Simulated scan of single mutants.
Amino acid sequence: MTDRVDNDTALEEVLGFLADPPASGTSEDARFGARLRQVLSASIVDDPVDEDDPTPKPELTLDDDLRRKLEAAAKHRSSNPFGEHPDGIGPTLGMDLSKS
């Protein structure tokens, strides 16, 4: 696992990786994934627990264009066992229907 850095540094590294993506499966690729998750997590605001709580602010503010690029990169990096069916393929019957 890569060492955690502050969010601004992570954002700088992610922008560098977006400009020059590392080869898949390398230690740089793993670092890119970790930094990408860190940046996206830091840019999300959780809902306030109580109505009286002040509205929380994200640790990092991303413009819409950058957020779309980062989310697309994260989606591209994630492995989906359902291939072109991102929401899954529905329930399975647990039996082999090819012989019927």
Rank of each mutant, 00 (worst) to 15 (best):
I44T: 04
T55Q: 14
P56L: 04
A72Y: 15
P81Q: 07
I44K: 00
D65N: 12
P81E: 07
K69D: 11
P81W: 03
N80R: 00
S78M: 13
E59G: 00
L62P: 13
H85G: 00
D63M: 01
P81K: 06
A74C: 06
N80Q: 02
E51K: 14
D50L: 13
L66Y: 11
V45A: 01
D47Q: 09
A73Q: 12
R67H: 14
I44M: 00
L70W: 07
D65L: 10
V49A: 13
P56S: 03
L66S: 07
D50E: 05
K57C: 00
K75E: 13
H76A: 15
R68I: 11
T61G: 03
P56W: 05
P58Y: 14
P81R: 06
E51V: 12
R77I: 05
H85R: 02
R67W: 15
L70I: 07
T55R: 10
P58F: 13
E59H: 06
V45Y: 06
H76C: 09
D52I: 04
L60Q: 00
S43Q: 02
G83R: 04
P48V: 04
P58T: 09
L66Q: 08
A74L: 08
L62K: 01
V45K: 02
G83P: 12
A42D: 04
N80L: 03
V45I: 08
G90S: 09
L60N: 01
D53G: 09
D50H: 15
H85K: 02
P54V: 09
R67F: 15
H85E: 03
G88Y: 15
L60W: 03
R67T: 12
D64R: 00
L66T: 08
H76V: 08
S43K: 00
P91M: 01
K69W: 12
L66D: 03
D52N: 09
I44R: 01
D87K: 06
E71L: 15
E71G: 03
R67I: 07
D65Y: 13
D63V: 00
S41T: 10
D46W: 12
P81S: 05
D47A: 09
R67L: 15
S79I: 05
I89L: 10
R77Q: 12
D47H: 11
D64Y: 03
D53L: 02
D53C: 08
E71Y: 15
G88L: 15
D63N: 10
V49D: 12
S79L: 04
V45R: 01
E59D: 07
I44D: 01
G88E: 15
A72F: 14
P54C: 01
T61Q: 08
P48F: 06
D53T: 07
D64T: 03
T61S: 08
K57Q: 11
